[in-house]
Design a protein around this nucleic acid. Sequence first.
DNA 1: CTAGTTGCAAAGCATTTGCCTGTGG
DNA 2: CCACAGGCAAATGCTTTGCAACTAG
Lengths: 128, 128
Amino acid sequence: MSRTTPQRQAIRDALAGAGRPLSPNELLDLAQDEIPKLGMATVYRTLSLLVEEGEAVAVELPGEPPRYEHRSAAEHHHHHFRCDSCERVFDVEGCPGNMKGMLPKGFSLRAHHITLFGTCDECAKKAG
Amino acid sequence: MSRTTPQRQAIRDALAGAGRPLSPNELLDLAQDEIPKLGMATVYRTLSLLVEEGEAVAVELPGEPPRYEHRSAAEHHHHHFRCDSCERVFDVEGCPGNMKGMLPKGFSLRAHHITLFGTCDECAKKAG
DNA sequence: CTAGTTGCAAAGCATTTGCCTGTGG
DNA sequence: CCACAGGCAAATGCTTTGCAACTAG
């Protein structure tokens, strides 16, 4: 059975507390505040485990390696925003919907991903 | 200056003739019909060159390495559809637009990507 | 106790680069 | 002729795996 270890707890906590999708590196940095010797391999292994358990969800963005967010964020339909400046990713609410009109004849739709790109509020402030 | 070689010509032709975004591997296969000894390194080097020249455009999809499409496809705003079954990617016309309403307060929008997932017409027919 | 976990180092893979030979202009 | 290109093989960077030591239950 799957054990509760300090490493896993630190990773779970970081994910749950972030409120946005985190990259494996961001996760390593955050979790190392708790467990300084934590290795990247453990982060990857724990992420696979959390995804299997349904505790975390992979967030795939165009042109970037996957990030991961806590189950609570994934429970409702949402999309993502990536800041050009700080490169952080945020969840965004709402959806234009009605994407069936875009389909070529004979194609059927199962899902859609929308990614917005621009500047987040913090970076906008810094830039003046 | 940049030279015209049989390798580059084969790659250009494959891209121009495809009518949809191609992965480096698809491109290698197609171009090897013309130049059997063509190497992957040349495909990658030529793609960078074509992108610099504006002859080709990189198409980034969530969770996948970039594909490339001919300039002619990129001249107008469009999005992409990926078939779950054959894994090919197609261009789709139209756009729900008005994505600004989704932005959190203080965020500004520069661009958006939409990717549709489902089954293409050919695969739908095969599946009956 | 002892099977599941971890850290470290080595292995994988797709992409990129270095180097020497070949060739377009 | 000779600077640019191409093929091959080695290097890279991120992710995964192997393995011996460690620890939760």
